[in-house]
Amino acid sequence: MKIIIAAGTGFLGKNLEKYFTEKGSQVYILTRNPKRKNEIFWDAKTLDEWKNILENSDVLINLAGKSVDCRYTEKNKKEIYSSRIESTKVLQQAINECINKPKVWLNASSATIYIHSETHLNTEENGIIGDDFSMNICKSWEKEFFISKTENVRKVALRTSIVLGNNGGAFPKLKMITKFGLGGKQGRGNQNISWIHIDDFCRSVEHIINNENIVGEINITAPNPLPNEEFMRKLRKKMKVPFGLNAPVWQLEIASIFLKSETELLLKSRNVYPDKLMKSGLEFTYSKVDYAFKNLV
Rank of each mutant, 00 (worst) to 15 (best):
R236N: 04
F243Q: 00
K260C: 11
S117Q: 06
K66Q: 15
G24C: 05
K14V: 01
Q186F: 14
K101E: 02
V272L: 06
Y19G: 01
E262H: 14
N38H: 14
K2D: 12
E264Y: 13
R154K: 08
L60H: 00
D48P: 04
K149I: 13
E124W: 00
L267K: 07
D48L: 09
A157Q: 07
G183E: 10
K179I: 02
K78R: 12
I95S: 05
L63R: 08
K276C: 10
K237D: 14
T160H: 13
V90A: 11
W141N: 04
K101G: 00
I257P: 10
N224E: 15
K45S: 07
Y81E: 14
I29Q: 08
K288L: 14
W42Y: 04
G169V: 12
L164I: 14
K143H: 13
E79A: 09
N166T: 13
K185R: 08
N62F: 07
N15A: 12
P242W: 10
S140G: 13
Y19A: 00
E17W: 01
L252Q: 02
A7V: 02
V27A: 09
E212W: 05
M135D: 08
R233P: 00
I128P: 00
K238P: 06
Q191S: 05
P172S: 09
M176C: 12
N100H: 15
F133M: 12
K101T: 05
S82C: 00
I177W: 07
G127E: 04
T263F: 01
I137K: 06
T88K: 05
I85N: 03
V289H: 04
S83A: 01
Q251L: 14
M278A: 15
D43P: 05
G10Q: 11
T150Q: 15
K279Y: 02
K237G: 06
K89Q: 14
V272G: 07
M135K: 14
N33G: 06
N228M: 13
N62A: 10
G169S: 10
K143L: 07
F145E: 06
N228K: 10
G169D: 07
T9L: 05
G281L: 10
G65C: 03
A222D: 12
L164T: 06
I5M: 08
R270C: 13
K51I: 10
C138Q: 10
E262C: 13
I115W: 09
W105Y: 15
P172G: 07
